[in-house]
Design a protein around this nucleic acid. Structure first.
Lengths: 212, 212
DNA sequence: GTCTATAAACGGATAGAC
DNA sequence: GTCTATCCGTTTATAGAC
C-alpha cells in the first residue's frame, strides 16, 4: 500500500495508494467528516468520479486506513514485544516502539495512522465494532504486561487499567505535537517519554537503566 | 450559562443555555461537522429556525463553547494553583484539578468542555487563533512550574516541554475513557493518575506523600 | 420566540462517453 | 482509467407569518 523511502518518509506508489495516502492526510488535517471526496481527488490530481473507480465509498476508505494503521502497530509493537519474556523489558519496548511509530509517520498536520484510530462518529456500528475489537486486543496486550509486573510487586499501587489508559493517552497524544520543531530528535523524545511513563508506573528498582 | 446542581451535574437553565448544553453534547458525541443544527434543535425541542434566533451561526456556537471550557479550566485549575508558591505543590494541584475537571463533566459519550478543545478543522483561522492563544497560555503555565522544579534539581532529566505534553496528553485522553465503569471513584482515578504523572517527572523525594 | 417554507450550496455517489 | 454531467439528499442559513 505505502512504501518507506529509506528515511521514514512514506511514498505512495500506485494510484490507489496515492488516494489512500492523501485521504489519510486530509482526514487527520480536517477530520473525516470535513474532508470531502473532492478534496481527496484534488490532492491526488484526478476527479472525484475517477476516485470512485478505486474506492467503493468513503466509509470503507476510512475503515481500510484504520485497519492499515492497526496492522502497522501489530508489526512494529506487538510482534517484537511478544518475544520478550521479562515483563519490564516488554513494557519498555511497547512504549518506546509505539512512540516511535506515532512519531515516525507524522506529517505536518498529524499522524495519519494513529490519530484517526479514534475518529468519532466516522464509522457505522458494523465497521466500528471490528476496529474496536482490534483496539481492545491491543489494550489488553499492554494491560497484561502491567498486571504481570504488579503481581511480581514491581509496580506502584495503581490499577492496571488506569495505568494502561494513562500510558496510551500520553502516546497517542504525541501525534498532535511531535515533529513540529526539530530541537530534539524523535528518538530522544521517545526516550524521555518512555522514562516518564515507566517511572510513573514501575518502582525505581525495576525501571531499566537508560530511563532510570 | 450552565449551573451545577450540587452533585456535579450541569443543568441548563434558559433556552439559550439549553442550546449550548445540547450542542456541546452532540459535538462531542458525533463531532462538530457531523452534528447538525437540526440535531441540536431536535435535542432542545424546538425547530432549527428558532435556534438561529439565539445563535448567529454554527461556528460561533463552537467558538463560545471552547471559550467556556477554557474559562472553567482557568477557574478550577489556574486560579487556585496560582496561589501556591511551592512548585511541587502547584504542579500537583494542577494535575489533580485538571483531571477532576475532565472527569467531573463527563457525559455518557465524552466531555463537552475538554475533548473538543481540539476539534480539528472546526474553526476558521480567525477564531482558531484566539483559542490557540488561550491554550498556549495554559500550556506555558504548566511548563513554568516544571521549569522551576527542574532548576531546583527536583526533576528527572526531562525536557520541560516534552514533560508538559506528556502530562496534558494523559489528562486530556482521560475524557475518552473515564466514567464508563464505576469500579473506581473519580477521585480515586484522579489520585492514581496524579501519582503516575508526578512520579514520571519528579524525583522520588519530591513527590508529595499521598502519591509517593 | 417559534413556526413553515425555502433558498443556495455542498456532500456522496452514479451514468455513460471516451 | 479518467472524464463531464448529473441525481439526490442534507446542510447552513434566511424570509416572513403568527
Amino acid at each position: 500500500m505505502l512504501v518507506y523511502a529509506g528515511d521514514g518518509v512514506l511514498v505512495p506508489m500506485s494510484r490507489i495508494e496515492q488516494i489512500y495516502f492523501h485521504a489519510a492526510q486530509l482526514f487527520v488535517e480536517k477530520g473525516f467528516a470535513v474532508a470531502s471526496m473532492s478534496d481527496i481527488a484534488e490532492a491526488v490530481g484526478i476527479t472525484k468520479a475517477a476516485t470512485y473507480h478505486f474506492v467503493p465509498n468513503k466509509e470503507e476508505l476510512l475503515f481500510n486506513l484504520m485497519n492499515f494503521g492497526l496492522d502497522i502497530l501489530e508489526d512494529d509493537v506487538v510482534k517484537p514485544a511478544s518475544t520478550i519474556e521479562d515483563p519490564a523489558g516488554r513494557l519498555t519496548l511497547i512504549v518506546k516502539n509505539h512512540l516511535l511509530n506515532v512519531g515516525r509517520m507524522k506529517t505536518e498536520t498529524g499522524n495519519p495512522f494513529t490519530i484517526f484510530l479514534d475518529e468519532p462518529g466516522g464509522l457505522s456500528p458494523k465497521y466500528r465494532e471490528a476496529i474496536d475489537a482490534r483496539k481492545r486486543t491491543y489494550f489488553e496486550f499492554v494491560r497484561e504486561s502491567i498486571i504481570a509486573l504488579r503481581d511480581a510487586g514491581h509496580t506502584h499501587d495503581v490499577d492496571p487499567s488506569v495505568a494502561t489508559f494513562s500510558l496510551l493517552g500520553m502516546i497517542i497524544w504525541m501525534s498532535r505535537w511531535a515533529g513540529r520543531r526539530n530541537r530534539m530528535s524523535l528518538d530522544q523524545i521517545a526516550d524521555e517519554m518512555t522514562g516518564i511513563a515507566l517511572r510513573g508506573i514501575l518502582k525505581p528498582a525495576v525501571v531499566p537503566t537508560p530511563y532510570h
